[in-house]
Design a protein around this nucleic acid. Structure first.
Length: 517
RNA sequence: GGGCCCGUAGCUCAGCGGUAGAGCAGUGGACUUUUAAUCCAUCGGUCUUCGGUUCGAAUCCGAGCGGGCCUACCA
């Protein structure tokens, strides 16, 4: 009999025995104190003796995370959302119900009532007078000392990670705090939080490949959104002046410690603001979130400390390339020239890549990794920014910036293009590049163009990857640590694995082989 | 996508050609202030899968599956 099945069977047996006495899954539980509240109440009352008139009586609930049996007395550690509290159960105080302790396993939930006291080793403890099992667990907890360390188990069964690893809880709570702080920041500035469709006829607003799905009743293919941009701008056309959305977007790309196919994107749009206004807002946003979450604008990442004090460093796309890649892109105005340079610098280039895509390759390879402290890079080539306004004094550059921290792109913002004629022309250019084999293009969206033709006020727009923001705020190196349930490959069943192995074997040796030959 | 590394009990890990091991958890026993409680005994394994080499494979070789790190694209 496999050991796991044996453990399950033992616990099922205990469940049956508990059922015979009382429901080990009651619907109603009355907790008077969390672990933290009980300790606080005990301290506030001056730690009265448990048998005195002013003893602190509590009912606590939580998961049994340790059991120390001492014969006719036992200590149990109970863990709840606020921390840990110790129970002391004595046979002389509990009588028959003491014997029922043998039906409790690590991982079960228990409710216990009694008065608080401090043991001689200093632990605040409930002297239990009544207790019961309120959830019987059938599978064992992770090991008490080492917990669960296997990264695969930690992500596939995040609940085990959360119950065993304090750090995992910390990260989850920090993410909650970041999201709350971001919302407060925007709401406090008069932005309206809105929601726009995830299912779209055309997935636009970014250069990425979408997921496809299907609507049965309409018998129509739909795409999952890759950005929030085009619908939020429609709201600006409609007269909402300051809007933001925090939403999941989906990009049909690889999975790695830097990429998850679904991620949380923040976008905001503000009428009558330009990208300089947005940059100032971003500085305040990052400093605000850091202060709210951390209490400081200095965040340690391994050896490095990031300083989020405003103002952030500012450079331009052209200057950054000159400085870190050592060339001026104006000296390489053609695809051929740039491709030759890429070859010379041993920079791999995609088939059919356009001039703009090639240039961005240099940016990613030579510039971005160097931008550790927060740095705004202003004025991207127009070809890379089909939704951003041209600079009035430089037709080749767009009013766009990206913010880099720790070599990561943390924010992307434009003075939004609101000239419908220019927008249509740029979308057509994108379509031409797609036809030429460049995949990093944005898809035209006729409905959006019609909206723009009704007039969108001058607008400053912003996009921030929330997962990366949480990474920055937690100091975590891997995106997969800040997403509770990151995408994983399917784990095949035993039969599937067998089948695949056979298929692979057949593929290597097609046709029957003659052992005599 | 490319390179390197990993997969042994529920969990954390040893073992690296010769009968599959420890700690924790579980089970039985001792113990009424312990806290990684302690002590005694004990149960528990298709050693990721398939194939190869070998008298003999957890161990060596190949492939598959899953995972990690680095690297590349995208946020």
């Amino acid at each position: 009999m496999p050991s796991e099945a044996e453990l399950l069977a033992q616990r099922l047996e205990k469940r049956e025995r508990l059922l015979a006495l009382a429901d080990p899954y009651p619907a109603t539980v009355r907790r008077t104190h969390s672990a933290a509240a009980a300790a606080a109440a005990f301290a506030a009352a001056g730690e009265p003796a448990p048998d005195s008139a002013d003893a602190i009586a509590v009912t606590v609930t939580g998961r049994v995370t340790a059991q120390r049996g001492m014969g006719r007395a036992s200590f149990l550690d109970l863990t709840d959302g606020t921390g840990r509290i110790q129970l002391h159960l004595r046979s002389d105080a509990l009588g028959d119900s003491y014997e029922r302790l043998s039906l409790v396993d690590l991982g079960d939930f228990v409710e216990a009532s009694g008065s608080l006291f401090r043991t001689r080793t200093g632990e605040i403890t409930v002297a239990v007078t009544a207790w019961r099992v309120i959830t019987k667990a059938l599978r064992p907890m992770p090991e008490k000392w080492h917990g669960v360390t296997d990264v695969e188990t930690r992500t596939r069964q995040r609940y085990l990670d959360l119950m065993a690893n304090e750090r995992s809880r910390e990260i989850a709570l920090t993410r909650v705090a970041v999201l709350a702080a971001v919302r407060r920041f925007f709401v406090g500035r008069g932005f309206l939080e809105v929601e726009t469709p995830v299912l779209q006829e055309q997935a636009g607003g970014a250069a990425a490949r979408p997921f496809m799905t299907h609507h049965n009743t309409l018998d129509r293919d739909l795409f999952l959104r890759i950005s929030l941009e085009l619908h939020l701008k429609r709201l600006l056309v409609g007269g909402l002046e300051k809007v933001f959305e925090i939403g999941r977007v989906f990009r049909n790309e690889g999975i790695s410690h830097r990429h998850n196919p679904e991620f949380t994107l923040l976008e905001s749009y503000e009428a009558y603001a330009d990208y300089h206004d947005v940059a100032r807002m971003v500085e305040e946003l990052f400093a605000y979130v850091a202060a709210e979450v951390h209490g400081t604008v200095h965040i340690t990442h391994g050896e490095q400390t990031v300083d989020l004090t405003a103002p952030f460093a500012r450079t331009t796309y052209r200057r950054a390339l000159q400085e870190h890649a050592g060339f001026d892109y104006r000296d390489y105005p053609t695809v051929e020239a740039l491709r030759a340079l890429a070859h010379e610098r041993r920079l791999p280039v995609a088939q059919g890549a356009s001039w703009a895509t090639l240039l961005d390759g240099f940016m990613s390879a030579f510039v971005e990794p160097k931008l550790v402290q927060p740095t705004f890079v202003f004025d991207y080539p127009v070809e890379l920014s089909p939704l951003a306004k041209r600079k009035p004094d430089d037709e080749g550059a767009a009013e766009r910036f990206e913010l880099f921290v720790l070599g990561y792109e943390m924010a992307n913002a434009y003075s939004e293009l609101n000239d419908p004629v220019d927008q249509r022309a740029r979308m057509e250019e994108q379509a031409r590049r797609l036809a030429a084999g460049d995949h990093e293009v944005e898809v035209a969206d006729e409905d959006f163009l019609v909206a723009l033709e009704h007039g969108m006020p001058p607008t400053g727009g912003l996009g921030v990857g929330i997962d990366r923001l949480v990474q920055l705020m937690t100091g975590e190196h891997s995106l997969r640590e800040v997403i509770l349930f990151p995408a994983m490959r399917e784990r095949p069943s035993g039969e599937q694995a067998l089948e695949r192995a056979r298929a692979a074997a057949e593929a290597r040796a097609p046709g029957p082989t003659d052992p005599a030959s």
